[in-house]
Amino acid sequence: MVLDIFLLSVLVLASLWTVMTRSILRSAIGLALTSVILTIVMFRLNAPLAAMFELSVCAGLISVLFISTISLTQPYTNEEVLERMKIMFARFKFLPILLVGLGAFLFFMNIRPFVPFYYKESLVDVRVFLWDLRRIDIFGQILILLVGVFGVVILFKERVKK
């Protein structure tokens, strides 16, 4: 329980650092760090398959995608970046105050569950679920991947000169 609370507070702090940090490159690295901590939390909640997906895709692939995009689209010099960072920090300084206020509100309201949990015994393994019971979903995912591929192809299509 103590480890759970520690991991969740590190998760919130890492995402706060991701949003508040001045350099956008550090922001992308902080997103990967958030993803890694979320992976550990998911392993503790008995979801190893989804945790491995999260680690390989969200912490690996999306970080590479973001960092390469940031390196392709950095139009400012160092002085301009420092100047913009001060403006950005002025906009984001209310976020920790808002979070502390919200945390105190939620803590002192002492909200009790309004959703009834029912503990039905789950008999199905995740592999059976994924490959036998939800087989149509796999086709849906393949279609979504194809949609993404066609989207990127159309976005970067070179125009034919007449």
Partner: peptide, 30 residues
Amino acid sequence: TNQGALAQCLVITLIVVEVVMMTVAVGVVL
């Protein structure tokens, strides 16, 4: 709710959709 297998299937679908959305969004940004 003791339905971890179903939740993992949903999360895997969510991650696939997330990656496709991010790739297309990054293409739009570029």
